[in-house]
Each structure stands twice: as structure tokens, then as C-alpha cells.
Nucleic acid binder design. Sequence first.
DNA 1: CTTAGTGCAAACTGTTTGCAGAGGG
DNA 2: CCCTCTGCAAACAGTTTGCACTAAG
Lengths: 137, 137
Amino acid sequence: MQLRMTNQREIILNELRKSRQHLTADELYGRVKKFMPRISLATVYRNLETLSEAGIIAKIEISGRQKRFDYDIEAHDHIFCVQCHRVDNISLERGLISVSSLSLPPKYQITGYRVEFSGICPPCQKKNRKAKDKKIS
Amino acid sequence: MQLRMTNQREIILNELRKSRQHLTADELYGRVKKFMPRISLATVYRNLETLSEAGIIAKIEISGRQKRFDYDIEAHDHIFCVQCHRVDNISLERGLISVSSLSLPPKYQITGYRVEFSGICPPCQKKNRKAKDKKIS
DNA sequence: CTTAGTGCAAACTGTTTGCAGAGGG
DNA sequence: CCCTCTGCAAACAGTTTGCACTAAG
């Protein structure tokens, strides 16, 4: 089963890459629709799945209800905003953590690990400051 | 708004604690129904939400589609099985990772982090071995 | 008594799937 | 031409919610 570079697939990939963000399927759907108004959400889902299986993009499972997709397939970690759920990359030294950091090693056959920071993103910090100012005045 | 210790709440809490596992809402529903056949799944969801808001249990967001709930509210990390999605505790030295481990520090106001190992759990390893043996013979 | 909690069904969100037709290679 | 991909609608899984009734304190 070989991949075809259809118009919709190309636009989806382009939009994800140029966004430089970690978008959900429906965020991407919104962007892609501007170029291709008749595209269906199912097509976006199917392509994101296909592209991530092919290793062209990465599917990331982060706290929150929706899956997000990453244009960057290098191993790296993420930080997400607890308020708006935006996700950004962080570069945490790989190798800092290893199986040997585990006391009480589980009898699992380890395949990997993920580190996920949480916090408040700059835009939300700004929003909070404004809201607070309003309250006071 | 104060908490009442209802019968259903007590059984849910008991079952989660005595399981020593990280159960999903419907796994717990199945267990609780044995004692209280007319309980509704919505009640289980509501109570898990309430109990975790009250800090009596912990809600954990791990890879996979369903949320799981943890009887242990101490800060600790998890490992999950990529095959059966079972979740277990791991003890990773807290303090190993800190904001200062981040090169290129994001401008986030950091609130925490989670580490999630993945692997194949002992029962699944066993299952795999059996399946393989069958194939060969 | 008061008001938090319950059971039920219906709504909702995010995602997947069956199908008939379109279009890439 | 073949077979992957598409749009559409319907199905699905997990979770939440409105409502009238129940029961904890």
C-alpha cells in the first residue's frame, strides 16, 4: 500500500508545517477549509493518521481531550498551557532520564518515555494580568 | 458546598483503593455494580470527579483514550502498557527534573511536570511469548 | 428541613467507518 | 485502468447534563 500525494494531503501537511504549532484535527480542518472548502473532517483525520503512521508527522498524546499533531518528528518533549491547552516544544536534555533512574524498577520491558511540563503560556499570563487589573479598578 | 459520604461514594472509593490499580470509570462501574447493582455510570463519573477535586483521589491523564483514577495522591509517575493500556506506578526520583533542566526555557510560568514511561507489562510479555511459541510449533 | 447526591435518558464531543463515486499514478 | 483516496452520513466511545426524586446531615 503506497501513499499518494493528493491535493488534500498536501494542503494538510503544508498547513501543519507552516503553523509551527501542535494543532488538533479540527483546528487544522478550519485552516485547510480556507483553501479547499469541500474537504471533510474525516479526510483530515484519515490523513493525519496516515501521515503519522508513515512517520512524516507525529501524533502526540498530551493531557487534554483532543489529540494533537506535530510537524516535528525529532524526539523532544512538550509543555502545555493548563488554561488554553496550547502545546509548545521544550528541549529537555535527552539522556537525563533513563531506566536506571527508576528505583523499584517495574518488570516492564521499557519502550520509551515522555516528559510533559505544564504551565501558563505567555498569552494567557497576559490575559490574566488584564483580567486582574479590571477587577481591581 | 460540602461533601456527603453517600453509600455509592464510599463503595467507589473503597473499590478504587482496594484494587491497587489505576482504573477507568467503567472498570470501576463494573466492580461497584456487584455491591450496588442499580448504581448508574453517571454517578461513578460524578463521584470520581468530585473526589479528585477534593484531593481524595487523583485523576490521571495518560496516553490512551480513557481517563484513569489513582488511589495514591502522592506525587509520582506512571508507566503504561502499550498493549493493554494497564497503568502502574513508578518511583522516579523527584527533583531529577527541574525547570533548570530546560535549555531554551519557554516563557511559560511552570506549574509542574509528568513523566510517563511506556513499555510492555509482564502479563503481556507472557502472552506474547505464548503466541510466538504457537506460531513456531 | 435543606440541599447534595442519585438514576435515567438524552445530549454532546471527538473520532472512526461503510459506501459509492472520484482521481492519482 | 486499478486501487487509494474522497465526501457524506451514520455509528461509535467516552463523558456530561437536565430533571424529578431520594437521602444525608
